[in-house]
Design a protein around this nucleic acid. Sequence first.
DNA 1: TGAATACTATTGTTATAACAAGTTGGTTTT
DNA 2: AAAACCAACTTGTTATAACAATAGTATTCA
Lengths: 243, 243
Amino acid sequence: MTSSQPLHLIISEKLRYRITQGDYPSGAQIPSEYQLMAEFEVSRITVRRAIANLVQQGLVMAQQGRGVFVTPQQKVTYSLSSPMVFFEADMARQGVVSTIQNLVFESILPPVQVQNLLELPKRSQVYFQKKLLLLNGAPVAVDLSYTLHRLGKTLARDLKRQMTFPMLEQHGVMIDRIETVIESTHANPEISDYLDVPLGHPLICYSYRAFNDQNQPIVCGEALSRGDRLCYSVVIRRDQSPD
Amino acid sequence: MTSSQPLHLIISEKLRYRITQGDYPSGAQIPSEYQLMAEFEVSRITVRRAIANLVQQGLVMAQQGRGVFVTPQQKVTYSLSSPMVFFEADMARQGVVSTIQNLVFESILPPVQVQNLLELPKRSQVYFQKKLLLLNGAPVAVDLSYTLHRLGKTLARDLKRQMTFPMLEQHGVMIDRIETVIESTHANPEISDYLDVPLGHPLICYSYRAFNDQNQPIVCGEALSRGDRLCYSVVIRRDQSPD
DNA sequence: TGAATACTATTGTTATAACAAGTTGGTTTT
DNA sequence: AAAACCAACTTGTTATAACAATAGTATTCA
């Protein structure tokens, strides 16, 4: 172990290799800190740093008192191609049950950016909602949305219980188009609590603005989802219409 | 500081607040480790852990011997909506110069998955390419691609110098459609070196498979880009064609 | 005046040590 | 048999300490 690379990186790379080679399969526990200390003849802090490197790469998750386990790799894909298919329908197509858990639902004065996105006059209120999205019962996303006040007020009960878009359409509010931006970001402490991921875990941030059939923006927001559980697909065509 | 939250988290949240409030603007240096030790009356390891939390959240970057600096926040957006616009054209539209730096270009026996994606008989070779994508001279993505052997062989010179798709079309190979999947993942040591990001940094993984106008898959691969520099946008329409 | 050296400041790595907190399995008590 | 207790195991936090490496500035020397 005389090398220009730090010990913690040498150890974490060796462990990573073992994981990718299947020595520690998905869900399996890797050796304890004390076992690794003995094996590699280093201090505990070096072992912990090596494990932290693996946690940061999403290869393992550590549970206090239990041990460090190889994370399962399983993702679902949501198609963003036109024609529009709402999230829960796409999930159902894949045999995945999607549900929500409402966290916050309140009338607020929106940030300026939201006001502009929803094309609202100054000092208009909107309904702010924070909800957890669960797939097969496990939290995979936190959704923060802003809905026109008149819709939020009349549909509050259902908005707290169902996914937004299909629910709006059930009530005759048709969604004509959704503008989206997809980015990758880091989990902050609040989000990492909700989604049970380590601080800094990669998230997909799916920002959206939905327009009704009068070309009026009615909802905007962003869904922060676990990068290891959800991904998006698009088909890009040379021309606008399909073959 | 008597609380149920660990000290390192309390401190990093305070620092994060200062950053978001503008006390330390983009590019500015935050107080040194010793200054923070004095301010918060904690050990150096606690301060370092707090700083590591900020690094993990992408808010700061640490440079040995120099200090810890607030990371600039600047992104470009690539539109995945149809009709197709290639990456470099979209960037040019935004006044951003995109260039590539070839790292590897070789004929290989492809992994089984690639073989299937390109619909190749067993034991066919493909051209594997690894290249760095730079925006305004700064590396933002590593691209790993597999191209049909006959194309790779005849167009090797240009493939090493230019972006793939416009170059193919210059040579009469039309791209009819691209199937994509977007996911979020973590930077491993190799990628973190190429892109100059910390281990575990969130990346967008943009996987693609491009078809020519005979509906034949000709290139597949993935671009791993910095989550803080590049994002994607899509417009989803209720119906297939635009209004 | 420019180059080389020394010093200071700052982050990076690794060690030992101690205590805290959570989990699990075995043993004892009811 | 079920509940409670306890010990062992395991990860989490924080401290002190020492050395390494890098960067920037000041001082010295040719």
